[in-house]
Amino acid sequence: MPSDKEKRNTKILAVAGKGGVGKTSIAANIVRLLAENYPGKRILAIDADPAVGLSTALGIEVETTIDDIRKAVVAAAEKGGTRDAVELLGEARYRIFDALVEADGFSFIAVGRPEAAGCYCKVNLYLKEVISILADNFDYVVIDGEAGIEQINRRVMEKVTHLLLITDSSRKGTQVIRTIKKVADELVMYEQVGAIANRLPSMDVTQYLEMGDIPVLAYIPSDAALAEFDLKGENVFFLPKDAAIVKGTREALTKIGLLDGEN
C-alpha cells in the first residue's frame, strides 16, 4: 500500500527573485488561483519572507510564527533546561500545526525572521524537517521566499517541485533570477523552473530581457489595479479576474502544468 505522501504527490512551488519585483503579489495570486480552481485540495501558503508581506496580500492576521517556536526551544536550552528543550522539540510538530491559520480555501503559516548569527543550527534543521512533514499534509504548498538568493538552499526552500523566478524589466532583476537558477541547479531538487516578467512598462521591453536558459511563463504589464490594492493593503482575492497580474499568473501556472488550459 502506498504511503500518504506517495498518494498525495504534493506540489511545492517556491517563488523567488529580487526585492521590489512583485514576488509576493504573484505568490498570493498563485494561492488564490489554486484555491479557486481546486476547492477539494488542501493548499498551504508559507511566508518565508521576514517582511511577512504574504499575510497582508492574503488578508491573514499572523499571531505565531515558526521562528517563535524555535525561539522557545532555544530559550529553554539557554536556561539549562535540557529536559524542557527536549520536550519542546518533541512537541514542535504539534505546535507548528497549532500555528496554522485556516482561511477560506487554504491554510497559512509564517516562518518568521531569519536566524541570527550563532543560532542553534541543529534546532533549525529539526524545524525545517518539521516544515517538510507539515507540507506532506497538503496537495499544494506555495512558498513566498525572502528576496535574493540566500534562502534558496535553506529552510523550506531546499526541496521544491516548481521553482518560479520573478523579475521586472531591470537588468538587476534578470541577473538575480539567472543567479538563483544557477544556485538552484546545484542545491535545490526542483522538477520544473520558469520565469515571470512582471511590472513591465510596455511589452516592447520583452525583447531586451536576458533570461538565459530560463523559459518565460508570462509577461505581465504594470497593473494599476494591483498598485491600488497594495497601497490599501487589500486581499488579492478581491482583485478582478481580468486584472493583469491575475491573468498573467494564470498563464504561468497553465504553462508549467499546474492549471488546465480551461481554468
Score class of each variant (00 low, 15 high):
Met157Tyr: 08
Lys41Met: 14
Gly112Leu: 01
Val86Met: 11
Cys121Asn: 01
Thr82Asn: 06
Val123Asn: 06
Gly81Tyr: 05
Tyr126Ala: 10
Asn137Thr: 01
Ala135Ile: 01
Tyr126Glu: 11
Gly148Phe: 10
Thr65Glu: 05
Thr24Gly: 03
Val15Leu: 11
Gly17Arg: 01
Glu36His: 00
Phe138Ile: 07
Ile66His: 08
Asn124His: 00
Tyr38Ile: 14
Ala99Gln: 07
Leu44Asp: 01
Ile149His: 06
Tyr140Glu: 01
Leu88Gln: 07
Leu13Met: 10
Phe97Gly: 13
Asp67Ile: 14
Asp47Lys: 02
Val52Trp: 00
Tyr38Gln: 12
Ile46Ser: 06
Ile66Ser: 12
Ile96Gln: 09
Arg32Gly: 02
Thr82Ser: 14
Arg32His: 01
Ser55Pro: 14
Glu63Cys: 12
Lys71Pro: 00
Leu100Trp: 08
Lys128Gly: 13
Ile133Ala: 06
Gly53Tyr: 04
Leu33Val: 01
Leu54Pro: 06
Val156Cys: 10
Gly118Met: 10
Val52Tyr: 00
Asp67Tyr: 15
Val86Trp: 10
Tyr126Ile: 03
Phe138Cys: 02
Ile152Trp: 07
Cys119Gly: 13
Ala76Glu: 13
Ala103Val: 07
Asn37His: 12
Ile66Phe: 10
Glu61Tyr: 09
Gly148His: 09
Asp139Met: 08
Ser55Ala: 15
Ile60Ser: 11
Tyr94His: 11
Ala57Ile: 06
Gly148Asn: 11
Val74Glu: 15
Leu33Gly: 02
Lys23Phe: 09
Leu13Phe: 03
Val123Pro: 09
